[in-house]
């Protein structure tokens, strides 16, 4: 699983001292999306300490985290847990690990590929690209039609003028991974 140990990677990428977690579970207790997670936030830290990398990287938890930062605001050890989850997602993506949650990685990919093409997010294009990948093209169709009628879903996308710099930025980011 790559040439870097997951724990070292997370500490280095996130800058967070994950080993200081003593499992008070304040993060899990205050997390608004914890009921939908397969592994509770503090347990992710315990598994990380134990080196049970595979379970973490395939978990739905790392993708379900809404990055609301409630946990980080309350952690007695000042661990920014959402930042730890970012490092875990980035590692999973780098290593091509497919986990239980399929929709969110597909959404993030579609979002960034849109920015790479136009420099800005275009809602209609994002939804189309996402639904092509994940199915359910007619999901939320009623809502979409209503929003279109209200003039809230422009069909044509905006594009930044200096696309050369955006392309360069994405190429350099890819090389840095």
């Amino acid at each position: 699983m790559g040439d870097t140990n997951l724990l070292d990677y997370v500490i280095q990428k996130s800058g967070q001292d994950v080993l200081s977690c003593y499992h008070c579970q304040k993060c899990a207790a205050g997390c608004p999306v914890a009921p939908f997670m397969d592994i509770q936030p503090n347990v992710i830290h315990r598994l990380l300490q134990y080196g049970r990398d595979d379970e973490i990287l395939k978990s739905a938890t790392i993708w379900i985290c809404a990055a609301c930062e409630t946990c980080g605001a309350r952690c007695p050890n000042d661990i920014d847990i959402a930042k730890v989850n970012d490092a875990l997602k980035q590692y999973a993506v780098r290593e091509g690990i497919k986990g239980k949650e399929k929709g969110m990685p597909a959404m993030h990919n579609a979002f960034l590929s849109g920015i790479e093409k136009r420099g800005r997010m275009h809602e209609v294009s994002l939804i189309r690209e996402l639904r092509m990948k994940t199915g359910g093209l007619f999901k939320d169709m009623k809502l979409g039609i209503k929003m279109f009628k209200l003039g809230k879903l422009p069909l044509f996308s905006e594009k930044v003028k200096n696309m050369g710099e955006i392309k360069k930025l994405f190429e350099k980011a890819r090389r840095a991974q």
Binding site: D86, Q90, M104, N109, G119, V160, I166, K172, A176
Partner: peptide, 16 residues
């Protein structure tokens, strides 16, 4: 101006 990357930027790529 360019998109801020929103939650997709920080989820997938630290450089972006």
């Amino acid at each position: 101006w360019v998109c801020c990357g929103a939650s997709s930027g920080h989820s997938l790529d630290e450089t972006l």
